[in-house]
């Protein structure tokens, strides 16, 4: 490490201070203040028990995990070959792929969602094409249900996976692949026995970051999902915005925050190991 520990801390200090002021203090204020409303610890525990094991919250937690897992799997399956292509591409092709991946970041969620409506709606482009070529007789329901949530979230989360995997793939020593080929390995074997294991830490990191982000999603499921596609963050938002039931929201926030932080700890470890191995 070329930077001394002290210098590093000094350089980080302004950012850390900002984060503490802008994120930690308000969250602390919100959680602390809301829980204080409930009263004693045992009263808090009682409320927690009632909130977390009530039908809606349990269902939302299940939904959240299931949707997050499914989206993560899809993002991995789509993202892996995409990252591979990106790690191999040069010049214009590279720029083109990268732009396609990153561009969605610069459009607002609302614009993006209306774009999805144009594509996926009952009278949208995809249904019209499928109806036109006679593949279906009735329009498919691609939006306002679980399918819509999965499509939307997969799209939004793809860049995180692709960029994480790209970093891991770019770090793979190309000479190792050539060496494997020279030692008699077929392209499939080179991929399975050398490339995949060498990018595994990237896969784990990508899966964790995608899953973590997916857990906290609420804009996309709210806009593209059906009535039953409620994720935990949406429930929190409802408790804050609709019922003004902040203690309940605070309790759910603690649960989500804890799970996220635990997963993040794993993520941090994995990426550290990835660094160390190089």
């Amino acid at each position: 490490m070329p930077l001394s520990r002290l210098t590093a801390w000094l350089l980080l200090a302004p950012t850390l201070l900002l984060l503490v002021l802008v994120f930690l203090v308000p969250i602390g204020w919100f959680i602390g203040g809301s829980l204080a409303e409930l009263g004693t610890l045992s009263e808090i525990w009682e409320e927690a028990d009632a909130v977390l094991f009530s039908g809606a919250v349990g269902g939302a937690i299940l939904n959240t995990n299931w949707i997050a897992a499914l989206v993560t799997l899809l993002v991995l399956l789509i993202g892996y070959p995409m990252s591979y292509a990106l790690s191999r591409a040069k010049g214009l092709v590279f720029t083109a792929i990268l732009l396609c991946i990153v561009l969605p970041y610069f459009t607002s969620t609302i614009v993006r969602t209306y774009a999805w409506m144009v594509l996926l709606g009952r009278n949208g482009l995809i249904n019209q094409i499928l109806l036109g070529i006679g593949l279906i007789n009735e329009p498919l329901q691609l939006m306002y249900n679980r399918t819509g949530v999965i499509i939307g979230m997969t799209y939004v989360l793809l860049p995180y996976m692709v960029l994480t995997l790209y970093a891991a793939m770019k770090a793979v020593d190309q000479r190792l692949l050539q060496a494997a080929e020279g030692m008699g390995a077929s392209p499939a074997t080179v991929f399975l026995k050398v490339f995949m294991p060498l990018t595994l830490h990237g896969v784990i990191a990508g899966v964790l970051i995608t899953f973590i982000l997916a857990l906290g999603f609420f804009v996309t499921p709210a806009l593209m999902g059906g009535p039953g596609d409620i994720m935990i963050a949406m429930l929190i938002e409802r408790e804050v915005e609709l019922t003004y039931n902040w203690p309940t929201a605070a309790l759910m926030t603690i649960v989500l925050l804890t799970v996220t932080l635990i997963l993040y700890a794993f993520y941090a470890r994995i990426s550290d190991q990835g660094e160390a191995r190089r």
Binding site: D173, R175, L176, Q178, A179, E181, G182, M183, G184, A185, S186
Partner: peptide, 15 residues
């Protein structure tokens, strides 16, 4: 292709 040549190889930086 390389895998059909049945060669032994020692690489620069060992690989």
């Amino acid at each position: 292709p390389p895998r059909g040549r049945g060669l032994g190889m020692v690489f620069q930086n060992y690989a």
